[in-house]
Design a protein around this nucleic acid. Structure first.
Length: 264
DNA sequence: ATGGTGGCGGTGCCA
């Protein structure tokens, strides 16, 4: 099975790019973030025509996540537990049957958290605490789990083009990195880093200041795997070329292959 | 070089 995550930065602006990518990359499951539309505005027909089902958690104007899959999920969770007052569409989780047993996947759009001195940074850290709790619950079921998405965290200085300049940014702050490590310490594996321990690779390049042309990137889009999924990890990569296409998202797809097949 | 780009919605906010 091929599973990918992509912060699409408005799915309506990028329906063409997305459908083309689905046709040549052919993932079984794609986790989308920042769809930036309400459910009824989602280009469902175009994506269904490419052979996929859509599970959508939309929001007007901002945020929004979705799961695009070859087969419909068996079960869906549309919120991250732990804060009923949180109305931001940043989490959707689904369960699929596979030849290797159940596969639980989540599409996560973690808060950016800047500016650090504002209320946005504690919101980010609180969201990460909630995510850790959910990651723990899923871990205890001893099934395959893939927690994918835009984490808005650079795990280490290796994942930043200029670590000194970014040291105090919410994406690199020690509190953010520590919260990410708390999830890893549960026993989750960063799929890309596990297979490419020394790679200098990014998944995001800002639209501003020639960041793409200068390769001023960050690795902030991640696929975190439970042991049952990590045991079956065969490959992981980043589709950097998407960033060079016309009208790109500022993020590119990150994908992985699992030694399992979709059931049915 | 204290700028720059892009998306939403129709003005500033968000990233």
């Amino acid at each position: 099975m091929k599973i990918a995550t992509w912060n699409i930065n408005s799915i309506r602006r990028r329906t063409g790019n997305l459908v083309e990518w689905l046709r040549h990359a052919a993932p079984d499951v794609l986790l989308l973030q920042e769809i930036k539309c309400q459910d009824e505005q989602f280009p469902r027909l175009e994506i269904e025509a490419a052979g996929y089902c859509c599970t959508i958690v939309g929001q007007k104007g901002f945020n929004g996540v979705a799961i695009v899959s070859r087969t419909p999920p068996e079960l869906v969770h549309r919120t991250l537990p732990g804060d009923h007052g949180d109305v931001q569409a940043r989490y959707v989780e689904a369960r699929f049957a596979t030849s290797a047993g159940p596969l639980n996947v989540a599409s996560i759009y973690l808060p950016n958290g800047n500016p650090v001195q504002s209320e946005k940074f504690p919101y980010k850290l609180a969201f990460m605490e909630r995510l850790q709790q959910r990651a723990r619950e899923l871990f205890e079921a001893e099934e395959m789990v893939v927690l994918g998405g835009d984490y808005n965290v650079c795990p280490t200085d290796m994942d930043v083009y200029d670590p000194v300049a970014w040291a105090n940014d919410a994406l690199c702050r020690p509190e953010s990195r520590k919260a990410l490590r708390t999830i890893l310490y549960l026993g989750y594996t960063d799929a890309f880093r596990a297979l490419h321990p020394d790679a200098k690779a990014y998944s995001f390049w800002d639209y501003q200041a020639g960041a793409w042309q200068r390769n001023n990137g960050l690795r902030i889009d991640h696929l975190l795997l439970s042991p049952q999924a990590a045991d079956r990890l065969k490959a992981c990569g980043i589709d950097k070329a998407e960033r060079g296409r016309p009208e790109p998202s500022d993020h590119v797809p990150v994908w992985m292959e699992l030694d399992a097949a979709p059931a049915g």
